[in-house]
Amino acid sequence: MTWIDFPLYSTLILITWVIGIVFLVVSYKKPSFIKFANILFLAGWTILIVFVIKLWLELDRPPMRTLGETRLWYSTFLPLIGFITYIRWKYKWFLAYSFGMASLFLVINYLNPETYSKTLMPALQSVWFVPHVLVYLFSYAVLAASSIVAIKGSYDSFKGNFKLETLKLADNLVYIGFAFLTLGLLFGALWAKEAWGHYWTWDPKEVWAFLTWMGYLIYIHYRHFHVHKTKQALTILALAFIVLLVCWFGVNYLPVADTSVHTYTEY
C-alpha cells in the first residue's frame, strides 16, 4: 500500500525542494547557484512522479478520487508550471513560489492520513474520469499561480514600483487556466450525460464550478476593456480565486453539501 510509503517519499522530496529554494534565494547574490537549485527541484519532482505512478499501479484505479489525491496532483502540476514559466519568462520568484506551494501541499497530505481505499464507485469508472480531473487540477494550479502573481502585483503597487509586465504574466496564466477550466467543465458535462443522463443538474459542485468560471470570465472581460485599471483587475483576480477555493475545498462544508453527487471522500 503505497500511501504508507508516503512519509518516506514526501520527506525526500521536501528535503530536495527546501534546499533547492535556499539555493534559489542564494542565486540572487551568486547567479551560478540557480543550476544547483534546478537540479534539486528536478530530482524531487522525479521522485514525486515515481510515487504517483506507483500509487496509480498499486490502487488499480486512477488516484483522483479523494481530496488528498487531488492535492497530490496539484503538487505534481505546480512544479511543471513553475518550470515552464521560468524557461519562458525567467521569473525566479515564481519558480520559488511554485515549489514552495507544492511543498506545502505535500505537508498537508503528510499531516492528513490518506485513504488507502481501492474501491471506486461505478459512476466514476469512466474514460472521462482522468481527463476531467487532470484538466481541472492543472487549471487550478495555473490559476493559483496567477493569483500569486496578483499578490506580487498588489505588493509592488503598494511599494510604488508596479510594472504592467506583472499583470501581463497574470493575464497569460489566466488565459491558460481559463481554457483548461472551460475544458474541465465541459468534459464534466459530457461525462454527466453518459453517467447520469443529464449534462447539467445544478449540483452544488457544478454550481461552484460555474461560479469559478464566471469569476475568471469577469476578470478576462474587465482586463480586455480596461487595460489600465490595474488595481480593480487585481481585486477581481483575488476574488475569483476565493471562489475557486470554495469550489475545491469549501463546498463540502457548505449547507448545500448534502445534496451533492461530488462527495466521494467519506471513506
Binding site: W202, V207, H221, P255
Partner: peptide, 21 residues
Amino acid sequence: SISSIVLVTVLVMIMGIIPQV
C-alpha cells in the same frame, strides 16, 4: 455585459449557498 455577468454570478452564488429544497 460585465454587470449582467456579475448579477448572474450573484444569483447563482445564492443557489450555491442556500440548499435548493
